[in-house]
Amino acid sequence: MSAVVVERVKAQFGSKVVETTSFRGDESIVVEPAAYYQVAKFLRDDPACDMSMFIDITAVDYPSRDARFELVLNLYSLHKAHRVRLKTRLFEAEQGEVADATRPTTVPTVSTLWAGANWFEREVWDMFGLKFEGHPDLRRLLLYEEFEGHPLRKDYSADKTQPLMPYRSGPDVLGKQRPFLGDEGMPFGRKDWAPRDASWSDDSLGDPEDAPPPDGTAPV
């Protein structure tokens, strides 16, 4: 059913379509970043596609790939009841790097096509640091402005905190106790993208026998 949409897009955009996959009934189309907006608009306006409803936009980080981020847009047609996933691959924006057309780092916003995309593009910016051209209000959505970095990138250590309030210290404030370390609860299968926060290393806790009294300071 949804395969119709894929065929329509292929016929319309031909060479701009990088690949299409169908897995467990989910159709997905990968397009070049330059064509991303046109394809999204086509999906919305073409009567055979009629993707009237915006479902979700998110990203996946693959640090090992050259084009590091995969932007994933899920769409749904309320009348035709088909779904499709539109994807595009983006490069990481380096600080001070001049824009390079062969390494696209941004795409145009689709919040002009679906009003619902507005906040979710903000979230992608917040969590992954991908920018959207022409977005009306690209602020952080979930985190605070003082936060540095983008936590859902694989190289952001999960337990690296950036407190807004300085932590109290005193005898009634306990830090982490043995045996709970930074990688507590992590199974063998976990991928070690990010080194765990250094301040919670085994050594910093010291020997449990002659441990200094917990001073309550937390990693910053």
Partner: peptide
């Protein structure tokens, strides 16, 4: 302005099984 209960659900999922 939302996000006052952001608890890092998606990050935590990538840590366990």
């Amino acid at each position: 302005q939302m996000g006052y209960l952001h608890r890092g659900f998606e990050k935590m999922c990538e840590r366990g099984t």
